[in-house]
Design a protein around this nucleic acid. Structure first.
Length: 512
RNA sequence: GGGCCCGUAGCUCAGUGGUAGAGCAGGGGACUUUUAAUCCCUCGGUCCAGGGUUCGAAUCCCUGCGGGCCUACCA
């Protein structure tokens, strides 16, 4: 019998013995104090005590998972951890009739214990247990308490074990929650309304990416998972909402890696009567606010880099940056052929069916974007790259669009939104032509969206921010998978979690 | 997608051609203020999978699977 099976069998045996004594999975528990509150209660009692040697706080009942056991004959020390901290428990055989039942407790079980809090000789706040019970019996062994869980694959596939074993995993999850909460508050305070728009769509637009396809059985039709939030949020501007935002999951049918997850969290906001310059100022404020709320500073440490998120950020333009960092003025290479030739000279790879705009973007990715370590706004993109943005006055080859780069990564993307329905239709038709020419990452013609625009959308500034990227930036994490609780993983045949489960479970239905 | 590296006990890791190991966890025992408790004993293996080389493979070679890092597209 494999070892893991033996360990599980032993724990199942203990579960049976606990069942004979009571319910090791009770429906309700009585917690009067968290571990942190229990310790605080002792400290408060110590402040007013006259005899510092024998301080006992009021009785407490705490709950938590057993993380350590030190059994010493007629006494035992156990540590339990709850959501906010850890506390030590002291069990004595001369106090507890059921002391021997501690044999049935393993690392990982949840206990409810009552007693008074005192300080041991070595100074640790400790519950002198007067009553206790198991409130959840775990039947699988926990990861090593001291070394933690280091196997990266297990940490991602069984994130609950990572969270159990590694403080850092808990911290990242908490900081991510703080980032999202701060963003919600930031927009709320500025009069933005949070909305939710469809994930399942007749066609997936608003970005240049391949969508996932799914099927609706009752309607017997294929639907697409959204790749952006943009086109529906703009419909809301048509409907008279002036400030909206959405924080939602989008899905892009691309590879998985430490920099890509097929689903990721996107923030988009749209503000009527604002332009992209105003959006840029808002983004500066947003990032600084997030950093201050989560970290207490706008100075970020990330690898070897020190980044300041204090406003204002550096500003340049797409064309100037490419001239400055690569010596390339793309207005001198107006045809696809000329630009392709240049890219090959500079050893920049691009797909055989890449358009002029796609090749240009490859040049930017190669020469310019990695240079922007400190937050830098890149303004005024070529029109060909930006089918949903408004053209600059007197310069139809460029649009009012910026992207924000930090640490060489794109963090934000924003436009003065295109609201001329005739221009929008033309641009979508141009995208469709590129698609017909073999580029499968283009904007689609969304007739329903165009009808909405034809009813009139006010001038507006729109913004998109990849939340996972922001969390990476704030936490200093290098891999996207560290900031996503359950990152997408490839199938693995021999799933660890499946084995014992199959053995001790009776099939609910006769096998077919 | 390309390059490099990794996969050994529940967990953390040794072991580079000659009988598969250690610590922790688990089981038994001693121990009434320990805290990575300590001490004695002990159970525990599909060495990722398949094929090959060899008298002999965890070890060398090939293929596959999974993962990591770097790189590319993206956000």
């Amino acid at each position: 019998m494999p070892t893991e099976q033996e360990l599980i069998a032993q724990r199942l045996e203990k579960r049976q013995r606990l069942l004979a004594l009571g319910d090791p999975y009770p429906p309700r528990v009585q917690r009067t104090h968290t571990t942190a509150e229990a310790i605080a209660a002792l400290e408060a009692a110590e402040l007013v005590a006259t005899d510092a040697e024998h301080v006992e706080a009021a009785p407490v009942t705490v709950v938590g998972r057993v993380t350590a056991q030190r059994v010493m004959g007629r006494a035992a020390f156990l540590d339990v951890r709850d959501g906010v901290g850890r506390i030590q428990l002291h069990f004595r055989r001369d106090v507890l009739d059921d002391f021997a039942n501690l044999d049935l407790v393993d690392l990982g079980d949840f206990l409810e214990v009552s007693g008074t809090v005192f300080r041991t000789r070595t100074g640790e706040a400790t519950v002198a247990v007067s009553a206790w019970r198991v409130i959840t019996k775990a039947i699988r062994p926990m990861p090593d308490a001291w070394h933690g869980l280091t196997d990266v694959e297990t940490r991602y596939r069984q994130r609950y074990l990572d969270l159990l074993a590694n403080e850092r995993a808990r911290q990242i999850a908490m900081q991510r929650a703080q980032v999202v909460a701060t963003i919600r508050r930031f927009f709320g305070e500025r009069g933005f309304m949070e909305v939710e728009t469809p994930v399942l769509q007749e066609q997936a637009g608003g970005a240049a990416a391949r969508p996932f396809v799914t099927h609706h059985n009752a309607l017997d039709r294929d639907l697409f998972l959204r790749i952006s939030l943009e086109l529906h949020l703009k419909r809301l501007l048509v409907g008279g909402m002036e400030r909206v935002f959405e924080i939602g999951r989008v899905f892009r049918n691309e590879g998985v890696s430490y920099r890509h997850n097929p689903e990721f969290t996107l923030l988009e906001s749209y503000e009527a009567y604002a332009d992209y310059q105003e959006v840029a100022r808002m983004v500066e404020s947003l990032l600084a606010t997030v950093a201050m709320d989560v970290l207490g500073t706008t100075d970020i440490h990330h690898g070897d880099h020190e980044v300041s998120l204090a406003a204002p950020f550096a500003r340049t333009t797409y064309r100037e940056a490419l001239i400055e960092y690569a010596g390339i003025d793309y207005t001198q290479y107006p045809t696809r052929e000329a630009l392709a030739e240049l890219a090959e000279e500079r050893h920049v790879a691009f797909a055989p069916n890449a358009s002029w705009a796609t090749i240009l973007d490859a040049l930017m990715s190669e020469f310019v974007e990695p240079r922007f370590i400190q937050p830098t706004f890149l303004f005024d993109y070529p029109t060909a790259l930006s089918p949903l943005a408004k053209k600059k006055a007197g310069d139809p080859d460029h649009v009012e669009r910026f992207e924000l780069f930090v640490l060489g990564y794109e963090i934000a993307n924003a436009y003065s939104e295109l609201n001329d329905p005739v221009d929008q239709r033309t641009r979508m038709e141009e995208q469709a032509a590129k698609r017909d020419a073999g580029d499968d990452e283009t904007e689609l013609i969304d007739e329903d969206f165009l009808v909405a625009l034809e009813h009139g959308m006010p001038p507006a500034g729109g913004l998109g921010i990849g939340i996972d990227r922001v969390v990476q930036l704030i936490t200093g994490e290098h891999s996207l998978r560290e900031v996503i609780l359950f990152p997408a993983m490839r199938d693995r045949d021999a799933h660890v979690a499946d084995r014992a489960h199959d053995e001790d479970e009776t099939p609910a239905e006769p096998s077919a």
